[in-house]
Nucleic acid binder design. Structure first.
Length: 741
DNA sequence: AGCACGCCGACT
DNA sequence: GTCGGCGTGCTC
């Protein structure tokens, strides 16, 4: 225990330890400067033998630590706090709720460069302006070099041009340099100023809302917190409502934050916003480098950027004048982080919007069951769009019973015929298959041996190009054996269908047609997705084969046929969310067909035409399916009726992980005896027990209320951190897990 | 998480 | 003889 006259600094550090660290102030700091220190300020501190950047969370005079342990911080990086009280509180709350170390929670809200100790200075934009001499030049000067004259004229007309604009206008830098060398222009850095509203907010007029869109749009209130579920099929005009709600927000002088799924931030999406608005838009996508990311962050914080579009982590973008948060495709799994700080950006968005007193719009054609449940309980306002805009009929899904049928490399004859018909009419076909590679297994025809991974409990996938066996779980690769290692037979055959195989088959069946495969392997290189899709958007007849990459974020105007090769996997998945995901994915894929004036057709190959989930989805639609699954969830005591958390542990020695979880369960039961309100299950092996040479187990917590679960987990986590086995196994807590794997 | 210390195997 | 393997322990 230490009590001091001078203030002590309580600091959160980016280490996986569930506590803060106390420091003495930097030696060179005056009492006046010290008095200025506020939470959110970043400091450089000594930590063991290393130097770290930490976030000040409090200034106090009493420490739990003995005096001799306290060291002085090296110094303040910036007196201006990097994190506002709003974000500081949001992150602390989230770290607490999702059971991650406070420092790790806070540091996810900071751009990498700030975490490394860079100052948060807004970079000015390099701009070209005329000098007095340049301004004085008469019209029609510089006759001998028309390009320079054109640039001069543009500058005289517009006052200044950003270098960025020059490249957009295809003016080479040499022309600008010529003007600078002649003393007519100069390059200066200007800090963009915020708050200047252009005369016209909109670059293009908004679309006229339909009779169905209008009442939904009019329910949104902009000056108070509310969560709205905007539920509408593909093509029902959700995006137009987003755009008009954003326009309303901008009109009020506020900023809009838009979150999209990981693969949803396509140039198409971004262009739609840029075409509409005449205000600075910032996109936080994976292509940005650290500096660009920091610039975007700073522009949002300064209020220069008025619309911020990004994936999951963009939720933590600081906003000067927050006005609305929109989450598109709210059911998408990528809003939940799957490692480290396992937060749900969708759920945290509700928290952030609530604290800010602003609206949150959750949009989806296939809302998650959690969200539907909340809408039913009237925690959310339910805005429902039924029809497709522009009178396009929603595609009907036709079931194709393949029981007993001999398939041609996975394809039913009816599917092949339908693809042929589609191509003959000059249209495009899309084949959906959620398995990359050539075939999901390699089997010996004589003895039944299957190629499995040495490091995981999994079959190895056969890849054709390049030819090898590949484990999709640990990335282990090896050569394709020539003979069966078990019986030495040479009759080894690939089993099942992957995208590579389908691509080859289709190319053989339709040699005159372009077959385009889109999956993680074919889009590995930067821009390869754009290149591949350019062909599709040209409108030429072609066949698209792909995994769920195809289903998300892309629109294919000329696709009139969708064939779903294997819908059965989701039906019998071990994960209780399997059927929900299957429904969402099938509808999303189906939604790729039949846009605008071209009617679409969707064929679903299945062995289970009578399965109640399939029947419900096809003949009664997603909402009936959701209702059915919800009833089941209520009976089986699963979310959204109960709250789950997982304590996972993995280790090279199986018993160590199991033992750790057994001890954890004992500790947990000592804190909170099992009861119907809070029950324990496990330790149980994970769905794939061995993965990457580690044995994985989990302990499940199932609670009626969030509060007691959270209280238990907080206490348990602290005890586990001190447990001797904790350093021998890899363990983590997942609150509201998305995948039970 | 890093980072150092520490105690055992195959290499110049 | 040493370079380096990763077990263990600690960080205000």
């Amino acid at each position: 225990m230490t009590a001091t006259q001078i203030p002590l600094l309580e600091i959160a550090l980016p280490v996986p330890l569930r506590r803060h660290f106390d420091y003495l102030p930097p030696a060179d700091m005056s009492p006046e400067q010290l008095a200025q220190l506020v939470p959110g300020v970043l400091l450089r501190v000594p930590f063991g033998r290393q130097q770290l950047v930490g976030v000040l969370v409090a200034v106090k005079s009493l420490s739990e630590q003995p005096e001799h342990k306290l060291r002085a911080a090296f110094g303040v990086i910036d007196e201006q706090p990097a994190l506002s009280p709003e974000l500081l509180e949001l992150c602390s709350w989230a770290a607490n709720y999702y059971q991650c170390a406070p420092g790790e929670g806070l540091h996810t809200a900071l751009p990498a460069l700030l975490r490394q100790g860079e100052q948060a200075r807004l970079r000015g934009e390099p701009v070209l302006r005329l000098t007095t001499e340049g301004k004085g030049l008469p019209e029609g000067a510089l006759k001998r070099s028309p390009k320079q004259a054109a640039l001069l004229a543009a500058l005289q007309q517009r006052g200044q041009l950003a270098l960025r604009e020059l490249s957009e206008l295809d003016i080479p830098g040499t022309i600008a340099k010529a003007l600078i060398d002649k003393g007519l222009a100069q390059k200066i850095e200007v800090t963009p100023d915020s708050g200047v509203q252009p005369a016209t907010l909109l670059r293009e007029p908004p679309l006229l809302l339909s009779d169905e869109q209008r009442p939904a749009f009019e329910q949104i209130q902009y000056h108070s917190f509310n969560t709205y579920l905007l539920d509408g099929a593909t093509g029902s005009g959700k995006t137009e409502i987003y755009l008009q709600a954003i326009a309303e927000t901008l009109k009020n002088g506020k900023q809009a934050l838009v979150l999209v799924p990981e693969i949803g931030l396509t140039p198409q999406t971004l262009q739609r916003f840029q075409r509409r608005f005449n205000l600075p838009i910032v996109a936080l996508h994976s292509g940005l480098n650290d500096r660009e990311r920091l610039d975007a962050w700073l522009q949002a914080r300064a209020g220069i950027a008025r619309i911020i579009i990004g994936t999951r982590s963009a939720l933590f973008t600081p906003l000067k004048e927050p006005g609305i948060i929109i989450i598109d495709e709210e059911h998408d799994g990528s809003f939940k982080q799957q490692d480290g700080f396992r937060y749900s950006a969708r759920d945290l968005a509700a928290m952030r919007a609530h604290r800010l007193g602003i609206p949150l719009i959750l949009g989806s054609a296939t809302p998650s069951l959690e969200t539907l449940h909340n809408a039913k309980l009237e925690r959310y306002r339910y805005l429902r769009l039924q029809a497709r805009a522009g009178n396009a009929k929603p595609p009907e899904i036709e079931l194709l019973d393949i029981r007993g049928e001999t398939l041609h490399e996975g394809f039913a004859q009816a599917s092949i015929n339908a693809i042929g018909d589609t191509l003959k009419r000059g249209n495009q076909a899309l084949v959906f298959l959620n398995r990359r590679g050539y075939a999901p297994a390699l089997e010996c025809h004589d003895c039944g041996w299957l190629a499995s991974c040495n490091h995981c409990d999994a079959r190895m996938t056969v890849h054709n190009n390049p030819r090898h066996l590949h484990c999709h779980h640990c990335d282990h690769q090896r050569a394709l054996p020539k003979r069966c290692p078990s019986c030495n037979s040479s009759k080894l055959q690939p089993l099942g269908q992957g995208t590579e195989r389908s691509e080859l088959v289709l190319q053989e069946l339709f040699p005159a047609t372009k077959v385009i495969r889109v999956d993680r392997d074919s889009t590995r290189n930067k821009n390869s997705m754009q290149t591949l899709l350019a062909d599709v958007h040209s409108g030429e007849p072609c066949i698209l084969v792909g995994t769920q990459m195809l289903a998300k974020g892309h629109h294919f105007e000329d696709v009139t046929l969708v064939v779903i090769i294997d819908a059965d996997a989701g039906l019998f998945s071990t994960d209780f969310r399997g059927p929900e995901r299957m429904g969402q994915l099938l509808l999303q894929v189906a939604g790729r067909a039949g846009r605008a004036e071209k009617p679409g057709r969707v064929l679903l190959q299945t062995h289970h035409t009578d399965h109640p989930l399939v029947q419900t989805l096809i003949y009664k639609g997603y909402h009936a399916l959701a209702e059915l699954i919800l009833q089941e969830r209520q009976l089986t005591q699963l979310p959204p009726f109960r709250h789950l958390a997982l304590l996972r542990a993995e280790s090279k020695q199986a018993q160590q992980a199991v033992h750790f979880l057994q001890q954890a369960r004992q500790l947990a039961e000592a804190i909170q005896a099992p009861s119907p309100a809070l029950s324990y299950l496990g330790p149980l092996p994970a769905m794939m027990e061995k993965r990457g040479d580690r044995f994985r187990y989990q302990l499940q917590f199932n609670a009626a209320q969030r509060k007691p679960l959270q209280a238990l987990l907080s206490q348990l986590a602290l005890q586990l951190e001190a447990h001797p086995l904790a350093s021998k196994v890899r363990w983590s807590i997942d609150v509201d897990p998305q995948d039970m794997a």
